[in-house]
Design a protein around this nucleic acid. Structure first.
Length: 645
RNA sequence: GCCGGAGUAGCUCAGUGGCCAGAGCAGCCGACUUGUAAUCGGCAGGUCAGGGGUUCGACUCCCCUCUCCGGCUCCA
């Protein structure tokens, strides 16, 4: 027999007999052999020990390969489970995949473990690593597998449900074992446990079996693993950096917002500095809207139950609404609004509309209240009360494409103005449960897709993730350290115009149903503020900073400071004229991340100068008055918002 | 909602089944009159999240509630 193996560079190696991946790697080169993790044949991965019998294309996957990292992490999960079983023999184990940055394994312990147990498990893993155990692949019949795993109810369930992804097909299952530990698995794996050198168990969490909340809850152990110590250290440093940027921590340090037990979950109170920050963000957004054909409206926080019956919220969204406010004497029931749309429809309905007016765009900073489950609340990012930069656009079907395009452009420009420039989109299509005709869905979905393509915005399609009333586009931004945050959402809606029976008069004097587009671009002001804080690590750009300039005095310079302040009256300024050393004033100012320290001493008065410390720049001393004022104006300038720019 | 962890002064955190619970920062009072990352001294500040229980005695052990943290589920 003759076996021809084609390598990625196109070269062909011939062998007399079948050859394992390991032998092939060795045959190619010793360095490659040393770093080899597994092999790839025709886009499928196999163990290094796999025997190649037919002519094919083969790639040796090494530790420098991203694919190898997944294999390492999957093997890490096996070793984790093995360690856990060694320490707690009666534990049942579920599944343990590789995930972004690491791996996890789900267990049902006889007694719950806590984070303090991780150290012990980690050292048991190290023992397994040190003993260099080989991962051995086997294929056994389903019957034998059921016998083998008879004390492991989760594995039995997997075998019975014939999940091919877990190494189960119709008649046989594949297993991997090292020493006594056996697991159902498709593989492949690292050749032996000693490949796992740089890892860390990070946290313990609850997780439902198979991700279904009706199933029992298991304990999940998370870990991270890497081929080099540098990569592990880098990852750990990134985690630390993310912790430093935590908006909840910064909000406290910078006196922006706070929460208290008596307030209740999911709501924050905004302190003066935080309220200013919000207001600057809102004002910028409001001006952008007003100069681009939006009309400001204003609506209340509660409405009668009939409104929510008409809108369908009570039928579809009740569990997310706060309980009703009942006025028993008057026999009236009110609800806090979870969304603004019904109110904006009422605004629309309050007048008769001609086709000549469309599109009509109503804009409002609308505070909404949603009774989110306690466990999902998270700082400013997930709240029960928040304010959307919300607008509803009423237009004809033919206007959807143009309108969505304008909207996407608007949103991108708006996010750019705040320094968020890496933007990606998700296009969510028709879900299983939906209303409206297929034609409408197709037309709207195509319009959205076309808009994204025309504007060259990279997007992924999320099949079936749309709202029941229409497809949507969500925009995500990447922050300074590469994390993705969902901000804008744009949704086409066929249902609410029907529910509320709204119309416009067309050029034949006929009454026609308009289409609605729901959209929030910053999303929620609270959430957006939180994202900005994390993006900038609290060092807000000058125009956004709650305090923009700290004037720090040395000696008695009050009349000169007044003169300086007069020339900077557009800005938010604090004066620190306490009788303390300059070093302390600077320390305090920098701690609060004020972008500019303007330092004025007595000798500046006669010279008509001052010193400026800009954030992230060298100190500037003896700056001439006019020049300094100019530089500060420049540094604190509010960005332009120009849709065509 | 579920699993696990936690809640001590305004903030960051020590602390022990047994006199009256500590520190730093912030605050107040006083001294220092200050030129680039915290001047010195004093004072005040707490129902140890709230409620119940065990105990001669609970901040400490147990139960319930609230709030927060890490996840899961959810996210129109």
């Amino acid at each position: 027999m003759n076996l021809d193996i084609t390598l990625p560079d196109g070269s062909v190696r011939s062998f007399e007999n079948s050859i394992t991946g390991d032998e092939l790697a060795k045959n190619i080169g010793s360095r490659l052999h040393k770093d080899a993790v597994c092999i790839e044949i025709e886009n499928k991965f196999y163990d290094l020990s796999y025997s190649i019998t037919d002519n094919c294309n083969v790639r040796i996957v090494t530790i420098n390969d991203l694919d190898a990292l997944h294999i390492l992490r999957h093997s890490s999960a096996h070793i984790l489970a093995q360690a856990v079983l060694n320490i707690f023999p009666n534990t049942e184990y579920g599944v343990g995949p590789s995930i972004e940055n690491g791996f996890y394994y789900d267990f049902k312990f006889t007694k719950p473990i806590s984070e303090s147990d991780l150290e012990q498990i980690e050292s048991e893993m190290k023992k397994i690593v040190k003993s260099k155990q080989e991962f051995v692949r086997d294929e056994i019949s389903k019957k034998d597998a059921l016998k083998l795993f008879k004390k492991q109810s989760f594995k039995v369930e997997l075998i019975k449900s014939a999940e091919s992804s877990e190494g189960v097909t119709n008649d046989y299952v594949s297993t991997y074992s090292n020493e006594q530990f056996v697991d159902l698995c498709m593989g492949p794996h690292i050749p032996n446990t000693s490949f796992l050198k740089h890892f860390k168990l990070t946290k313990v969490a609850g997780a439902y079996w198979r991700g279904d909340e009706n199933n029992p809850q298991l304990q999940r152990i998370y870990g991270t693993s890497w081929f080099s110590k540098e990569d592990l250290d880098l990852y750990m440093a990134q985690q630390e950096e993310a912790e430093k940027r935590d908006h909840r921590k910064l909000g406290n340090e910078l006196n922006l917002f706070t929460s208290t037990d008596e307030l209740g979950s999911g709501n924050f109170i905004w302190k003066p500095n935080g309220a200013i920050l919000r207001d600057v963000i809102e004002t910028f957004s409001k001006n952008a809207h007003l100069s681009n054909d939006y009309q400001l409206v204003n609506t209340p926080h509660i409405g009668k139950s009939v409104l929510w019956e008409t809108s369908g919220h009570l039928a579809h969204y009740k569990e997310n609404m706060y309980p009703p406010v009942v006025h028993e004497e008057n026999n009236e029931t009110y609800y806090l609004k979870p969304m603004n749309c019904p109110f904006h429809i009422l605004v629309y309905k309050s007048d008769l509309h001609s086709y000549k007016e469309l599109p009509i765009r109503f804009f409002e900073f609308g505070s909404v209240y949603r009774y989110e489950k306690t466990g999902v609340l998270h700082g400013l990012l997930r709240l029960r009360g928040f304010t959307q930069d919300d607008a509803h656009i009423f237009c004809t079907k033919n206007q959807i494409n143009e309108e969505v395009k304008t909207l996407l452009n608007f949103s991108v420009k708006l996010l750019n103005a705040f320094g968020l420039s890496e933007i990606e989109a998700d296009l969510s299509t028709k879900p299983d449960k939906s209303i409206g005709s297929d034609d409408d869905w197709d037309m709207a979905t195509e319009s959205l897709k076309k808009s994204l393509t025309e504007l060259d915005i990279p997007f992924a399609t999320a099949e079936g993730e749309g709202a029941f009333y229409g497809p949507k586009i969500d925009l995500h931004v990447k922050d300074a350290i590469g994390r993705r945050w969902q901000l804008s959402t744009i949704q086409v809606d066929f249902a609410q115009p029907d529910n509320f029976d709204i119309e416009y008069v067309d050029n034949n004097n006929k009454k026609i149903r308009p289409v609605m587009i729901h959209r929030a671009l910053l999303g929620s002001i609270e959430r957006f503020t939180g994202v900005l804080l994390e993006h900038y690590a609290g060092h807000m750009p000058g125009w956004l900073s709650p305090v923009q300039i700290d004037i720090l005095t040395i000696g008695n310079v009050s009349s000169y400071v007044a003169e300086i302040k007069e020339h900077l009256k557009d800005f938010r300024i604090n004066i620190d004229d306490r009788n303390v050393r300059l070093g302390e004033k600077i320390h305090n100012s920098q701690k609060l991340k004020v972008p500019i320290q303007l330092i004025v001493g007595e000798k500046d008065v006669s010279n008509k100068t001052f010193a400026i410390n800009f954030y992230h720049a060298d100190d500037k001393k003896d700056i001439e008055f006019e020049k300094g004022i100019k530089e500060i104006n420049n540094y604190l300038k509010t960005p332009e918002f120009d849709l065509n720019g």
